[in-house]
Design a protein around this nucleic acid. Structure first.
Lengths: 354, 354
DNA sequence: CTGAAAGCGCTAACAT
DNA sequence: ATGTTAGCGCTTTCAG
């Protein structure tokens, strides 16, 4: 920049003004400066800029479980859109459900002085984050509440799960299995809760023999689905707790040529073209990312207020043209998006099973 | 940091040494410093660090078309893994095939002084990048070559497409349609080329009536597939140029209850469970991300040499258990991964159709 | 083993 | 409309 100033015969500050489109520079001077910038291939250094000017880096950190999972990559896209609209950039990282990685990532992001943090917290024990918060880095939790009282954007896990099971029951199923993720994961527990609630309201006994928590990938879900198909009184339907588990279960069902109705949490591409008809608890991951990023942007701007709690709706969609079509196919069932002010539903530290 | 130094009764430099785990600090002194750091909630500032120390930011920029597309999000994951292993972070952005957005993103990333750039270039006209290159930011192109002579990692588009069409021909199809993306996109042109080559070697005439370039999303692909099904002498098979087009075509075929064999470029989750049997030209997007990131890391470390050209293999996989199964189902067909040293195949500036 | 001084590239706050 | 001075938080260089 010094070189540019010299080349254009002006002071540093004038170059700075031109670079930042500030007012108060004569057009011809500005032109001379711009020429020098082009000639010398100058590029302003945002590091120095941020260091000096209040510390805004116009970047936010995003910590998710795995970018390669469509659910999270759609979230990332929503975040990116909001951040990008304000000229910001997103630095993202996958934690793979590992608290240690999560911690390292957050640490790195804070050291890099991101303006704010968007986190899908894995597990609990975010006490260490108090430091970052105290240091003034605002934070928003997505998809799951962390054990810190900050803004949180969730989807209606319990409601969505309830609708899913109600749907199956409405179609005559009395023996509905549940296939869930690790019990340490908030959404897995919530969905289990919705499942249990729907059974209860239908007067169907909760049978632990056909409730399997603890599967975390496609392969595991497949194995457990195989087991479920082999129990003495096998289920006529299954509710799967997320996109990965749905995939695993579907594959197992197909391989066994079993006739089992399935509703899965999370929508997925081409669900409508599967051989087996499937119903999904759909929601908008990108919207979740957008909402969270918007809240974060507000906090970064310094807007106060109590921690926001946003609960995004789900809707049951019957995909394909199979036997399960019926009430709810395509239309909106879940609650409208609404902002609550109370604590987030469910105790993230509670036990895994009812 | 000054405060920490004061609190621990040492100098700035000593604190710096402790923070960076440098040798030459007495254990008890280091302990005192660490205590002060913890008490004051100090966090080192990487902005200042990078500014002073040579400028390494330990971050790389990734510009892709759309994180929400599984193909690119898998690339992103691969990149993340390599960067993360070295303690680096990834700043990514979606260009949406818009050269202007691409340019802005790259500009932002360079101003933020990323150590290197990974770009899926949309279109051409990267002359402006000379500046960044001259400024010393290494760059690697992924998935498509840019019009700059830098390291490039591609998949074997022509070969994969050729195998796809050969597979269909081997199953008796003589009337094979092609559904491709915008002709301005390198991979779309290359896949068209492979399609044309396979037809030629089979002695089948290239019929423009059943070759449709220019579709860029699921809906568009669906419409064009409808048209293809309605031509006087409709195709008995179709080769679709990417995951989005495959989805659109499949949906249209199903809706029309048509009996059309399909091979799609890009593998996708649950392809094996579709009602219609599908064969895919599979490859490893995450691997592409990893390879590119590794090459970039080498450049960042300052290793020289001529621009690398990596061509990643594809393999034809018959998904599902449909009528199309036959040679190649599951086994490896494409060439092994190999490094070329000549120019990348195909002229990215060439015309869209043969 | 530890410390003092200089300065990375930029901008905020004052001059002029 | 333009320039000067100081300093963001750190590391590098050179001295103890």
């Amino acid at each position: 920049m010094r070189e540019v100033a010299a080349a254009a015969g002006v002071s540093l500050k004038t170059v700075s003004r031109v670079v930042n489109d500030e007012a108060g520079v004569r057009p011809d001077t500005a032109e001379r400066v711009r020429a020098a910038i082009a000639r010398l291939g100058f590029q302003r250094n945002d590091l120095a800029r941020s260091l000096r000017g209040g510390g805004r880096t116009h970047s936010i950190g995003l910590v998710i479980k795995d970018v390669a999972n469509p659910f999270y990559s759609q979230i990332a896209r929503g975040v990116e859109d909001v951040a990008g609209a304000g000229g910001g950039l997103v630095i993202s990282g996958s934690s793979d459900e590992d608290p240690e990685r999560e911690r390292r990532l957050i640490r790195s992001l804070c050291e890099r002085r991101v303006d704010g943090l968007l986190v899908v917290p894995c597990g609990t024990g975010h006490g260490y984050l108090e430091t970052e918060l105290a240091l003034g880095t605002p934070m928003v939790f997505l998809d799951r509440p962390g054990d810190l009282d900050v803004d949180t954007v969730l989807i209606d896990n319990v409601g969505g799960a309830r609708e899913a099971v109600r749907h199956l029951v409405a179609h005559g199923h009395r023996r509905v299995a549940f296939l869930g993720d690790l019990p340490k994961i908030f959404t897995a527990r919530e969905r289990l809760r919705g499942y249990a609630e729907a059974l209860e309201e239908s007067g169907i006994a909760y049978d632990p023999a056909i409730v399997r928590m603890g599967q975390h990938d496609v392969a595991g879900a497949g194995h457990v689905m195989d087991e479920l198909l082999a129990v003495p009184d096998p289920p006529s339907a299954v509710f799967t707790g997320n996109n990965l588990l749905t995939a695993g279960a579907l594959r197992a069902i197909r391989a066994a040529r079993a006739r089992v109705a399935l509703v899965g949490f999370d929508d997925f591409e081409l669900a409508d073209l599967l051989a087996t008809p499937v119903t999904v608890v759909a929601h908008e991951p990108a919207d979740m990312g957008r909402r969270a990023a918007e809240i974060l942007a507000r906090r970064i701007r310094g807007e106060g207020g109590p921690p926001a709690r946003v609960l995004l709706p789900t809707r049951l969609i019957v995909r394909g043209s199979g036997e399960l079509s019926g009430p709810g196919s395509g239309e909106f069932i879940g609650p409208e998006a609404n902002e609550l002010s109370g604590p987030v539903a469910g105790d993230p530290n509670g036990p895994g099973c009812p």
